[in-house]
């Protein structure tokens, strides 16, 4: 099976969907002539032309609002945020207009948009460029939130996202763009809302998503070798809709839970998970639910310290051993 990068996997999904559906338009800052700030869209302009691959000014509220309006008439815009951190300047368009228009119209209007781009820290760009808004986004009924960790999932989930009739927010990770993984050529679809057990285990369930899946798998490997501990890693892949059943099934097997997330702790995705696990699997738990999150401060610039602010394999190992104690 061919090995391709996470970046290429997203590019392949975009190209295949542009090919499949003439209503799909890729739009964003530097997505065309510049080949994408992170080269995700490289080559798409040459292949599909400027009507399908549209360079926008630095104007997130403008072009995302435009995409929402166009989607009401059947265009299916896939809009790139150079960083998801910039969602704040388009907040009204994303979370008042896209999220609410179906509801406020009594179901008369669909908003089949995708907004995609990286949402992560760890690249020493300071607090303004390091936001992880999946919890904020998922707090809004009407939207879907996707957080792929691997090239295979990135491709399969993005194709599902583009075909979805609801607004889908697709959160990538700049640090994963170069990661390789096996992805078959051609059509693969990963349904939204289906978690994936990335590693089976019996002693502890780690519930995680995005780059923290990679950290958790490295930690699980270490824990197995050095501590003889069997860790199950559940990758949510989608935050909303949420596949809580796969999480609960794992908890029923291991009886101990560690949530790992690149979120600030207060009202994070993990907070919601912990609530649901205690509510729905209380009798399965042999101990309190543990959580490893980003250290609670704006993203620090200092490169070696930022690594310690975020979850990393060493911090996961430490947290896992605490959860098992």
């Amino acid at each position: 099976m061919p090995q391709i990068t996470y970046r290429e996997a997203i590019r392949h999904a975009l190209a295949e969907e542009l090919e499949r559906d003439p209503n799909v338009v890729v739009m964003g800052e530097e997505v065309g002539q510049f080949h994408g700030a992170y080269k995700v869209t490289e080559g798409l302009l040459a292949k599909f032309g400027p009507t399908r691959v549209v360079d926008t000014p630095i104007s997130e509220a403008g072009f995302i609002g435009l995409g929402v309006g166009a989607s009401m008439l059947g265009v299916r815009p896939v809009m790139e945020l150079m960083f998801w951190s910039f969602y704040s300047v388009a907040f009204d368009q994303i979370l008042n207009n896209a999220a609410n228009v179906r509801y406020m119209s009594g179901g008369q209007i669909n908003c089949p948009i995708v907004i995609r781009g990286p949402a992560n820290g760890g690249t020493n760009v300071g607090a303004t460029h390091s936001h992880t808004p999946e919890n904020v986004l998922a707090n809004h009924p009407g939207v879907k939130v996707v957080v792929p960790a691997t090239p295979y999932d990135a491709k399969g989930l993005l194709k599902s996202a583009i075909r979805d009739n609801d607004p889908v927010f697709f959160l990538e990770n700049t640090i994963l763009y170069g990661d390789k993984g096996e992805v078959p050529d051609g059509e693969i679809i990963v349904p939204l809302g289906k978690a994936d057990v990335k590693r089976a285990g019996t002693d502890l369930t780690i519930v995680t998503y995005g780059r923290c899946v990679i950290h958790s798998l490295a930690a699980a490997e270490h824990l197995a070798k050095e501590h003889g501990v069997s860790v199950e890693v559940v990758d949510l892949r989608t935050i909303r809709p949420l596949d809580i059943d796969t999480v609960l099934a794992s908890v029923a097997k291991t009886h101990r839970v560690l949530i790992v997330e690149e979120q600030k702790p207060f009202a994070s995705v993990g907070s919601q998970l912990a609530f649901m696990i205690q509510r729905e699997a209380f009798d399965e738990l042999d101990g309190p639910i543990h959580r490893l999150a980003t250290i609670d401060a704006p993203a620090i610039y200092s490169p070696p310290v930022e690594t310690e602010q975020l979850p990393n394999p060493q911090r996961v190992i430490k947290a896992a051993l605490e959860a098992l104690a």
């Binding site: 072009f63 609002g65 166009a70 008439l73």
Partner: peptide, 10 residues
Amino acid sequence: IPLGTGLAYA
């Protein structure tokens, strides 16, 4: 207003 511009875009 961005939405209206999007209607025109469509």
